[in-house]
Design a binder for these strands. Structure first.
Lengths: 222, 222, 222, 222
DNA sequence: GATGAATGAGTTTTCATTCAT
DNA sequence: TATGAATGAAAACTCATTCAT
């Protein structure tokens, strides 16, 4: 790791500095001079690694989104073969979502809080992100409906709603909260809600035992 | 009425102009000079009515939030006396939520899109809004659990998740979409999801002929 | 005192309000809106009585200068006939100067402190004021030298210096100081200093008993 | 020296430009854009070196005051041992005062004319300056009274008056006047006035052949 | 690559003054 | 006369970006 390593280090230092600064002051109040001061390099150095202030935010956001989608996709590869499979998959996806955000709380915070107002283009980006998530959920729903273990429903719309559930739990329980989070608890509650609904469960509708679905493996990026 | 009315008119004209400008360029790219040009008044006039660009956004946001909370509260006054009551109430709340956002799509768009990144303080404001909604849902959930018609669950957490469902549906289906929206359809689908969950309904899980619920005609609300 | 009286009252109220505001915030920081608020009239009313913010300061300054010069001139009418006369006259002038400034401390403060930086033209005005004072002193000095009771000296220059003595005593002892001032003491000390400095260095150099020269009469303007 | 020298140069260029602009238009009418135009640098460069327009004036004023006080103090180190010493010292101080102001006429002009009304804080600054001068004079007077060669007097008050003499001579004869000044003449006239005014009125009222003192040749100082 | 001084366009905000009522 | 809403020119100051060293 000779020269290339050094260069990457600088890029990463700046990225890390940018995270700290964006979190401390918010994106628009953050100055490039704050970032370089935080990173301990000269003003001009910034522009050797990033085209602009917006570009470094873009990098941050794309890293979050890319890592997120990639991780989720790794859990989804085979289509679920039945209800049990499906349950396990949803559990795994939820667990991964919450873990990912908890482990990268700062990045997630920037993604969900700082980026949006920064530039009109980030609105599109965020929407694209939700759309990607929603499409995957929708596909699974349709698969399940066809498989007969899910009830008929407007899959696209319900997918949006389910993504929203996860989104809000992440925003209010993981990003916004300060203290430690019980990821297992979050997962099992949201999973039950998603699978069962809130009505009193009639026979045979056992809310899944999520113990199994709660692997520690999720090491993502950063 | 004469004079006072004039003053209020000016305030409103500026507000309307600000909405148009914020939607067209985004909040941070919007200049006060754009707003006054749009409103057809002089630069200084703006500052007769609003302390700053941030202040007019605050006004917009508070107007949206206030109207929203007020409307929802008007639907919630008596606590639901049982499952049927509860269902009607949730239906009404969802319907009102979607109607309100559809009727004030521009305001809603500013609220959900422009305000967040504008200023650190708006993050707090938005969070407060979600917290208020969530607390109300939580109270209803707890009431229903005590009443025996809802299953035991972590009411605070599930409330967050349910608010998230509505939030995402609003954002992706009402605000983001351009065309007309079938509010009844949105309501009935989200209502079913919320009440029943997505698993195949076992016996007696009224009120649920899925066909009907999913169909366009379903009327859960007044 | 029908209409005219009213009009004059308004003018005076505005003037008084302007004094208070100029003293409180300084001329340049003072806003016309502060003055009208202080006077309890509408913004536009100001311009019925004064052409501009500068104009009201001009009015204030001219009132001070005019009153000052007028008062001094009333003491100087007959040329002093000899040393005794001269001493009495200098004493009276000093006493009047100090009284005037003490009685109109606020106006004086505006004159000496606020006006200068307000506008280049006030520099000229102030200089003109000093020039007028200096010329009068110079004339007396020349008269005294010709009369043989003052020593030969550069009358114009010494006049400037003597005016400066009074000026600084006024600024540091009357305007700047908060508490009460012993005008008799100021007068007698400055008088001694002045007379000893300029008298012909012959016999009879008794510093005047200033008791006599200290009349209470000085009621000036305002 | 290379780099540091450059930075200092820029500061000085801006300072010099500011002097020219303040003298030409007056402080309050002067725009930062005038200063940078005069200095031939960009608008933003100004703020690399000075926080604000007020700050550069502060710098100017402090430079004047500092240089002035420092110079005077260098003349005063040993306390005068008697009348002769005292005379020499007063002469030296007057001469230095006049020289300094004549040599830095522009700076002095800004100090005495522009700074005062600029900001309330400058009133304090100027007053502090006069207070410093006055205290030094007062100390000398008290020393002389104790030494028996000065007459009893209110040293603090007379000190103020004497400072005022110098102040007005500087303002009217050095700063305000355009042409050349005869510093020797100013010094000798003011010196006579001052000494006669404060010396003990006993025998030997040297140093006083009035003819000579008033003449151009008089040399009271080195 | 690294530096950091210099750039200058861009925007908010203020406030003396006007004028329709 | 009195009002006070409206005007709009004016200016300070910021900060992302560049570029000579």
């Amino acid at each position: 790791m000779g020269r290339g390593g050094r260069l990457e280090d600088r890029r990463e230092e700046l990225l890390a500095a940018a995270i700290r600064v964006f979190l401390a002051h918010g994106y628009s109040a953050a100055k490039v001079s704050d970032i370089v001061a935080e990173a301990g390099v000269a003003q001009g150095t910034f522009y050797l690694y990033y085209r602009s202030k917006e570009h470094i935010l873009h990098t941050l956001v794309e890293r979050f989104m890319g890592g997120f989608i990639e991780r989720l996709d790794s859990l989804r590869e085979p289509l679920p073969r039945g209800l049990v499979d499906y349950q396990a998959r949803v559990a795994a996806v939820l667990r991964a979502t919450f873990s990912l955000c908890a482990e990268n709380r700062q990045l997630a915070r920037i993604f969900f809080h700082e980026a949006l107002g920064a530039d009109p283009s980030f609105g599109e980006l965020l929407n694209g992100f939700y759309r990607q998530l929603s499409r995957r959920v929708q596909a699974d729903l349709e698969h399940g409906i066809a498989g007969g273990y899910l009830r008929p429903l407007d899959a696209a719309l319900v997918a949006d709603a389910l993504v929203g559930m996860g989104d809000m739990v992440v925003r209010r329980r993981i990003i916004f909260d300060q203290g430690d989070v019980d990821l297992d608890h979050l997962t099992s509650e949201v999973l039950s809600l998603e699978l069962l609904g809130i009505l009193r469960p009639s026979a045979g509708r056992a809310p899944t035992d999520d113990r199994e679905t709660t692997g520690r493996s999720a090491r993502w990026f950063g």
